[in-house]
Nucleic acid binder design. Structure first.
Length: 503
RNA sequence: GGCGGCAUAGCCAAGCGGUAAGGCAGAGGUCUGCAAAACCUUUAUCCCCGGUUCGAGUCCGGGUGCCGCCUCCA
């Protein structure tokens, strides 16, 4: 089965075939930097990071550009409110956004252009639009002449006649559906020189300029929130295709993520941002992995409800996965078994005991099935929700083997468990989730609560095991309580004791 | 009013014509010195009404209820 992508343009799932073989060029609309980003703004970031990861996982070379809108009326308003220069606002929130990306552990972008760095390119495109007869100057502003662009409405399904009937303000443009390409500056507003006087770019034009500059015309994927379909993306198409009428479609696949909702409220920055929705604050309480599993447990196009309880549920779900990984890794690295080489994630060799119902053969079947079904789910328009279900199925299946009373660890089984944990880890990485043990310890090391290092913990566990052998359970429990006070949880198995750090 | 989307168990959520994945929560059980973790068992006929079909959450028509967008900063 090949990858299918839901294209907003056709309102259908289409087979994904990039313009250039083996290469994908994608562009996603980034934030306007006039406030901290909310959990709602984090959805496209997490979703399209997953999209990028999956495309790379399937063998594509991906170029991924995300813009930063650093000149816009909301920014100017905020600067006026606070009585500061607009640069003070944007530099503060750009910095905050970059920190959020870092803390969310989002992969690198090929480029992150800012609108104010694109003025020259923006002016060139506007000039082209005017030269091609699709733009006009009126009262110092430049407008796009919507009636002259035949395909207007092809993305959003809006009809020009319907829109013409809308209430109109007092503007110098010819028709009320025309939109601004270049906006003249009022006194005191930030502005740049242009052939049409001092002013700034309209809201939509920067994305056209940036995507063309960094990725060329006819992008493979252009993404963003569903609320951007109209007018933002509709206008981008009009501008871009009017500027370059011979180049065909501006974008091949339009992808839009659903909104995050809070009960009875719209999570919109412009209507007041509650501190509970600010990503920065959420990241103080939850790991980026929790936020990612929360979001990716729902299909990216569905609406998603946000609440503290939802994040708590996601935390528990993620814990189930890390418990599995810990158990599997513990069992596959038990001493006096021949060490299993760390690089294994292939299935060869696992069937060396041919008993049809032997644990390793069963695990072999589960791994094989998991890989296939995970791929099928993701190939179906990046259905990470379904893929998550398949992951839990797999974990449950392997758990039922390793927790059964008859279970006995052997070299072959150890090998199959090593492969199991490797498969789970590598597939979680598609979601941007990294549960690698070494990294978890490193993170815990940074946590001030924990003042025991691994060696000290192991020493205490040894002491407790000795006490248990002597059937001195009081002492054993004392040690366990002591470890608990340092945030270390023990699990006794017949093969030995496993420990983990509290989340 | 226009365009688009959604409605599945207590909560969240897959499902794209063949007889309801998964997570969280609840109940009972197993393992354990006790715990922890995990496993087993248990909890739905899919908003309503018509229609197509041998067969429909799944397709079509009509309701009802939610949600997003409908641009110049409000």
């Amino acid at each position: 089965m090949s990858l299918k992508v839901y294209n907003t343009l056709s309102r259908k799932k289409e087979e994904f075939i990039p313009v250039i073989d083996k290469k994908v060029r994608m562009y996603v609309c980034g934030p306007t930097v006039y406030n901290y980003i909310s959990i709602g703004n984090a959805r496209p970031v997490i979703v399209f990071n997953m999209v990028r990861n999956y495309l790379e996982h399937t063998g594509y070379n991906v170029e991924f550009v995300q813009n930063i809108t650093d000149i816009e009326d909301k920014i100017i308003n905020k600067a006026n409110e606070e009585g500061v220069d607009f640069n003070d606002i944007t530099s503060k929130y750009i910095q905050a956004f970059l920190e959020d990306l870092e803390n969310l552990e989002i992969g690198r972008f090929s480029a992150m252009p800012k609108a104010t760095e694109m003025i020259k390119d923006i002016i060139e495109i506007i000039q082209r639009i005017i030269d091609n007869g699709h733009g006009y100057v009126a009262g110092g502003d430049v407008y796009f002449d919507v009636l002259k662009f035949n395909n207007y409405g092809k993305l959003s399904g809006q009809k020009k006649e319907e829109m013409m009937a809308q209430e109109s303000g007092q503007f110098s443009k010819k028709n009320n559906i025309d939109f601004t390409l270049w906006k003249s500056a009022k006194p005191g507003e930030p502005s740049w020189d242009s052939p049409w006087g001092q002013g700034r770019p309209g809201w939509h034009i920067e994305c056209s300029a940036m995507s063309m500059k960094y990725l060329d015309f006819k992008l493979d994927i252009h993404g963003g929130g569903i609320d951007l379909v109209f007018p933002h993306h509709e206008n981008e198409i009009a501008q871009s295709e009017a500027a370059f009428p011979d180049k065909g479609d501006f974008v091949k696949y339009w992808m839009h993520n659903g909104m995050i909702e809070v009960k009875d409220e719209k999570m919109s920055k412009s209507k007041g941002l509650k501190s509970d929705w600010i990503l920065k604050n959420l990241l103080k309480k939850h790991s980026p992995d929790v936020i990612k599993i929360y979001m990716l447990s729902t299909h990216y196009r569905s609406p998603l409800e946000f609440s503290a309880e939802k994040l708590e549920e996601a935390r528990k779900a993620l814990e189930k996965i890390s418990n599995f990984l810990r158990n599997a890794e513990f069992l596959s690295s038990i001493e006096n078994l021949k060490p299993v080489s760390s690089g294994i994630n292939e299935l060869t060799d696992i069937k060396s005991d041919f008993e049809p119902d032997s644990p390793s053969v069963k695990i072999y079947e589960y791994v094989k099935y998991f890989k296939e079904e995970f791929k099928n789910a993701m190939d179906d328009d990046f259905n990470s929700a379904k893929a998550t279900g398949i992951l839990f199925d797999f974990i449950g299946n392997v758990n039922s083997i390793i927790q059964s009373p008859e279970f006995k660890i052997t070299e072959t089984v150890a090998r199959s468990l090593k492969i199991s944990s490797g498969i789970v880890l590598s597939h979680l990485k598609i979601f941007g989730i990294n549960l690698d043990k070494s990294r978890q310890s490193l993170k815990a090391g940074n946590d001030k609560r924990i003042s025991l290092d691994d060696a000290e913990i192991l020493e205490l566990i040894e002491q407790r095991l000795y006490a248990r052998k002597q059937r001195d359970f009081k002492k054993a429990d004392r040690i366990r309580d002591r470890l608990k006070s340092f945030g270390v949880i023990l699990e006794d198995r017949k093969e030995g004791t496993i420990w983990k750090r509290e989340e």
